[in-house]
């Protein structure tokens, strides 16, 4: 485009760039603050009130404490379990549901679609769901994290749209070769829609990694709790207690200094996997957002 650059236009460009750099800085700074803080000297960190540009002194003390905290290891293991098993089973169920809804000749397709889509607009709510989960015996079991939220209807609708877009001719030619429904689904349809499958898997995985509420209300046994629950205990519950009470005189002084450092180290340990992965997978999420916005 040939464009005469007026001074006003140039001025706007400069301001725009400055603003966007500033915005990026605001988005990045909190994590930078925590990262730099996590390598700092505990005493200096606790006494420091302002922004952090680089570590204040250097110490790995916080990481030592965090990595020796058995709860962090348990939480990590459980989260990995919930993410892997949860994503696989959710994807499988979502795929089955989407397959059922995408068969045009299936007589109950409309009824099934209604039954499923209705739940997107109306549900029993937190308490009746809790009672049902308890009644079916899932309370305080690993299943309580995965099974009640097995299918996200929205994801299933996206998957259904993808399945419907597979050309019929592909399926028919396979059938002429004598393939049955299952072979058609897994050998013919699935490979064509693998981009959508990948997107939905990522959605499920990240959501599971970050989720904590269901674990909080359904799990009592520490050995089953995911990382986010322990994170909450370290980050939020301790601080609420110490914030309201005056520090006891006989409390271990070094422990008080470590508190802030431990928080920062825990955040880094729990968030680094996601932050390392997201720049590479974000484009798939973006396609996911677009898929969701396209009407059938």
């Amino acid at each position: 485009m040939v464009e005469r650059k007026t001074p006003a236009s140039r001025a706007f460009d400069v301001c725009n760039y400055i603003f966007l750099v500033f915005l990026s800085f605001i988005c990045l700074y909190p994590m930078w603050h925590v990262l730099v803080g996590s390598f700092s000297d505990p005493v200096q960190l606790t006494k420091h009130y302002g922004p952090l540009i680089r570590p204040l002194g250097f110490s790995l003390e916080g990481y030592k404490v965090v990595l020796h905290n058995p709860n962090v290891a348990i939480g990590y293991g459980n989260t990995l379990f919930y993410v892997i098993v949860g994503t696989l089973s959710r994807m499988f169920a979502t795929l089955i549901g989407a397959y059922v809804l995408s068969r045009k000749g299936f007589m109950f397709r409309k009824v099934m679609t209604f039954i499923m889509v209705f739940t997107m607009y109306f549900g029993g709510g937190m308490i009746p769901t809790f009672i049902v989960v308890k009644a079916v015996g899932l309370y305080d079991s690993r299943g309580a994290i995965i099974i009640p939220t097995l299918i996200a209807t929205w994801n299933m609708i996206i998957m259904k749209t993808a399945l419907q877009n597979v050309p019929d001719s592909l399926e028919e030619s396979a059938r002429l070769d004598g393939a049955n429904d299952l072979v058609v689904l897994f050998r013919i349809i699935l490979p064509v829609t693998k981009a959508t499958v990948a997107v939905i898997c990522l959605y499920y995985a990240v959501a599971e990694w970050n989720s904590w509420f269901n674990a909080m209300i359904y799990l009592r046994d520490n050995s089953k709790k995911p990382l986010q629950i322990f994170l909450r205990e370290i980050l939020l519950q301790n601080s609420q207690n110490s914030g309201n009470q005056t520090v006891q005189a006989d409390a271990d002084v070094s422990a008080i200094f470590l508190e802030e450092l431990i928080k920062y180290c825990t955040i880094i340990v729990a968030t680094v996997p996601i932050l390392c992965v997201y720049p590479f997978v974000q484009k798939y999420f973006v396609t996911g957002v677009m898929m969701g916005s396209i009407k059938e």
């Binding site: 904590w212 909450r232 974000q282």
Partner: peptide, 9 residues
């Protein structure tokens, strides 16, 4: 992409 617990922390 950062979890709600961490954001609130």
């Amino acid at each position: 992409f950062v979890s709600m617990v961490v954001i609130c922390g």
